[in-house]
Simulated scan of single mutants.
Amino acid sequence: MRKLLLTLLFASLPLALTACGDDEDKTPIDATPESWTWVDVPGTECGNGEQTGIAVNPNEASTDLYLYLQGGGACWDERTCFVLRSASNLTTGYQAAQFQTDSTRNAYMFDRAEPTNPFRDMSYVFVPYCTGDVHGGNAVQTYGTQQVHHKGASNVEAWLPRLVSTFPNVKRVFLAGSSAGAFGAQLNYERVAAAFPTAEVHVLADSGQMVTPAGTLLDTWLTNWGVTIPASCTNCGTDFTRFPAYLADTYPESRFGLLAWSRDGVLSNFFGYSAADFETRTLQLLTASYDGKDNARYFLKRGTQHTFLGSLDTTTSTTGVALEDWVSQWVEGNAAWSNVLEP
């Protein structure tokens, strides 16, 4: 059923937004097993127009793929991009040298020696963030006197065919991201699922609750970044809360997990709300788009902190649920996987 839905959806999209095309690079990536290898990917662009790539760390014995999208803010005009500089790597780009010094590569979630790490036996892919568009855009904008290449989604289209060739036996894809990467994981679910039509694809959004931002921000973001919202996602372009519900309802065989801080100090600022208002809207999102669904769950902690996966092994809810256990249940499709809501 999911394969049919994705086939119909992507048949109706412009060629540039699909994972198909005669000129795509399908060359398998040559990488040392259980070691990080940086790969430059032609056709990708950072905000400054320079090429970027991805990093892979394969486990040849595994049919599971952990695909992680990096976070790092966002920007949509001259002030946010060049005065506040609220998007990481936008002007510097992100190539092999940046990856070699990126602490994320040594995070617990990528540590194969940790016996309780739910991702320890998988093949890993690290997707850097340098486009300012939560991995969702396909546009080039001029802000003031400087140009920004918002090419997050088109970058996904550039490297996906190579991943398919590199991991032909994948049975389960775990698509995750933190902050900007969490929104990117949700926005790119259908692209990834279409590229791996015979595999399960599950999403874990770390600090990426899709509340509708204040004022006209959502329209500004979608327009300036060139984000394509599926036509079948009714009113998602004006009500962001509909998007996670659309995914869960349309793809019942996939699991959609959300990790959220109730008064996230980073997201509330970006979305234009006070901490209290953001908490109210987050709780409304959980009620409207997650509660009552068999394949969508959340792990919510009260507080103003931001992101969880960096402390995957040390976070526990006040109700006694260890985050590591909760994520393991998401991976396994365990019937015990349930909503966690701190009082």
Rank of each mutant, 00 (worst) to 15 (best):
K3T: 10
L6S: 08
L8C: 15
L8K: 15
L8Y: 14
P14Q: 14
D25E: 11
K26H: 14
K26W: 09
K26M: 12
T27K: 15
A31E: 13
T32L: 10
T37W: 04
P42A: 06
G49I: 08
A55H: 01
P58E: 05
N59A: 11
S62G: 09
D64A: 15
L65F: 05
W76R: 02
F82R: 11
L84Q: 15
G93M: 11
Q98I: 08
Q98N: 15
T101V: 15
D102H: 06
R105L: 14
F110K: 03
F110V: 08
D111V: 13
R112D: 15
N117M: 06
D121F: 10
D121M: 12
S123H: 09
Y124A: 00
Y129W: 03
C130V: 13
V134A: 11
A139E: 09
Q141Y: 11
T142S: 13
A153V: 13
A153P: 00
R162L: 14
L163Q: 00
K171P: 15
K171E: 15
A176C: 08
G177V: 05
S178D: 03
A194H: 04
F196M: 06
E200L: 10
A205E: 03
W221K: 00
T223E: 12
G226K: 08
T228A: 13
D239V: 03
F240C: 01
T250V: 10
P252C: 12
L259R: 02
S262D: 12
D264Q: 01
G265Y: 14
F271K: 00
D277K: 01
D277Y: 00
R281W: 03
T282G: 07
L285G: 09
R297F: 04
K301G: 06
R302P: 00
Q305D: 14
H306C: 02
L312Y: 05
D313N: 14
T314V: 13
T318L: 13
T319R: 09
G320M: 11
A322Y: 05
L323W: 03
V327P: 00
L341C: 09
E342K: 01
